[in-house]
Nucleic acid binder design. Structure first.
Lengths: 244, 244
DNA sequence: CAATGACAAAGTGTATACATTTTTGGCTAG
DNA sequence: CTAGCCAAAAATGTATACACTTTGTCATTG
């Protein structure tokens, strides 16, 4: 097939692209929790052969986004409510560290501009009178841009990787803000601004503290939302380790 | 080859075993920092074909233990001194969280016994009059057992994975204690006991605090050691991002 | 009728051939 | 003598065939 294909030579190779696509799908919850991924079917669906697909799956398993059992293939891990809470605790610490490092090391001009752009995008999302659905989309993008920029500003591959791992639980992904109502969003946005100021003023402790509280506040919103939704949508709510 | 081999059917498959072996080698520094891993040579050296080897390499790349560039294969990432420091900061937070979770959730009988065994092993290592080299080995094992047991006790896959990532920097691996002298070891051991007590007494805050301080103390020992050693062994010590 | 064992089907694991890309070494032109 | 280019070699990427393992089904048996 490789010979018959025009091969656009995108500088990126198949496994790399597959990792991206699959990660996105997994975070969007496109695959049922606990389900097995059939290599043959999936390869056909993605129009690649098993080899590059397996490469991608192995990588994702390494990241913890998939679970691998030797002769039984790859499965989508089931997340318990406990795991989601833990993920937020971990994320709060890691994002806090990222903010602290950013404050310690300072922002390059380019990064500072991007951070400010993200804040303005948040302003815009909250000010716009568009429908609820669109506002949510806009704010999610601004939110993701804000956090992503700080992750970069920390200039630590390790911290960035840890944060990626923390967001492997779809419910903690920063572009997933279903749990927010409008007042929540306003509060989050104000927190973003406080964090930004602490970083700009080079106050590491303050930046870390603000960021931690911010993420923990998100945790509470999320937990509240799940408690409400879970109450009538899913009756299998039993400790310990209820799966959502 | 699969057909000619007796195939001991160890319930574990080749890639799995390879991941273990390679991870160990990488953490032990068996491969030069920055070097490229040649798939053909490595496969021959490990007596497997390229396919399972690549599986293992992809997984390790997913963990961040290797760096992968599309048409250029796998390389051992170079660690800057900054990266090592960051790794300790992150590890301090993650281990602290693990200790807190362990204290919150309590220990099963079996885990508690293992933790106590690790402490006794530490006692033994410090009390024994064997030579310096053997003491170091014994203490490293006890240290690893202590921390590893707490990681399990936290009962969080995510926290465990984060900790594994933190230790991908060889210099932060808990079985790597080259930086300790005897008084260091005694101090670390005393800290272990305090952490153990906080967990047993179900005091999450205290456990987290003690663990954090403990890991940060290790960071200082390590940094001191590198500063001394680096002074005469490597002259390329230049900010920023000096590679060790 | 339930339990069990054998067989078939499906799925994963591995080896290998070949395509594509990168690297290397030498050659020529300036 | 150096710079740049071309071809050959080496290394990585992908497809595919086949081996092995698991799983599901059906018939046999207690």
């Amino acid at each position: 097939m490789a010979t018959s294909q025009p091969e656009q030579s995108n500088a990126s190779t198949q496994p790399r692209l597959l990792v991206e696509r699959l990660r996105q799908s997994l975070l969007d919850g496109a695959f049922a929790s606990g389900s097995r991924l059939n290599e043959v079917h999936l390869a056909r669906a993605l129009a690649v052969s098993r080899t590059p697909l397996r490469s991608a799956l192995q990588t994702l398993a390494g990241e913890g986004l998939l679970h691998y059992v030797p002769n039984r293939g790859f499965t989508v891990p089931e997340q318990s409510l406990n795991a989601i809470i833990d993920a937020y605790e971990m994320r709060a610490l890691a994002e806090g560290l990222a903010a602290r490092l950013a404050a310690e090391r300072g922002l390059s001009e380019e990064v500072r501009l991007r951070l400010e752009a993200a804040l303005r995008a948040g302003d815009h999302a909250l000010a716009s009178s568009t429908d609820e659905r669109e506002r949510r989309g806009l704010y999610a993008a601004a939110n993701e841009a804000f956090h992503g920029t700080i992750h970069e500003a920390a200039q630590s591959t390790l911290v960035k990787d840890v944060l990626r791992i923390c967001q492997r639980v779809p419910q903690t992904s920063s572009h997933n803000i279903v749990a927010f109502d409008l007042s929540d969003m306003r509060e989050r946005h104000a927190a973003h601004r406080r964090i930004y100021e602490a970083i700009i003023c080079r106050e590491p402790r303050e930046a870390e503290q603000q960021m931690r509280q911010h993420v923990l506040a998100v945790k509470v919103s999320m937990a509240r939302w799940y408690a409400q939704r879970g109450a009538f949508e899913q009756s299998k709510l039993e400790e310990p380790g209820l799966t959502v």
